[in-house]
């Protein structure tokens, strides 16, 4: 199975920092609000605590997350593995694939990466990040194989 590109770690780091900034904003707002409704202001420190805890957890789990996020494009199926504590292994036959979409958020764009959505008629699966060339390749490969499989039927 193939691993995600190395710089996806950077993206996860940035994402967790952004969530932390949101928590801090929430903390500041909650201080004002609590004072406004005359509740004890120490409640807002709980918010900060949760934020810090989440930051630490997310940052320390990045290597594990990286080690356990894998995918494989085989002849007949796509396989995606995710998660460390809660593992998920999905298999999608290429003949069932309806659509392959490439997405790119601002963080992904900075690292020149794409995420790949693989849709079937029922559900959709996501490969979190691959390089741009790789994404194009996956799309071409999967769609070609899907076409072939459909024409064979």
């Amino acid at each position: 199975m193939k691993k995600l590109p190395e710089n996806v770690k950077k993206i996860w780091m940035q994402a967790s920092i952004i969530t932390f900034i949101c928590w801090i904003l929430f903390f500041v707002v909650s201080r004002f609000l609590l004072a406004f409704i005359k509740w004890p202001t120490w409640i807002s420190f709980i918010v900060l605590g949760i934020g810090i805890l989440e930051l630490i957890c997310e940052l320390s789990l990045i290597p594990y997350r990286y080690a356990f996020n894998k995918y494989r494009i085989a002849e007949e199926y796509v396989e995606i593995q995710k998660g460390f504590f809660f593992r998920k292994l999905s298999s999608i036959p290429i003949a069932r694939v309806q659509n392959v979409n490439l997405d790119q958020g601002p963080l992904l764009r900075m690292q020149k990466l794409n995420s790949v959505d693989i849709d079937t008629a029922g559900d959709n699966h996501r490969i979190e990040a691959v390089t741009h060339q790789e994404a194009q390749l996956i799309r071409k490969q999967v769609m070609d194989l899907a076409m072939e499989a459909r024409n064979e039927k």
Binding site: R87, K88, S90, S91, I92, R96, A121
Partner: peptide, 12 residues
Amino acid sequence: QSITLRESIWMQ
């Protein structure tokens, strides 16, 4: 359409 295997490390 697809099949998914899920397990946590405790289940493993």
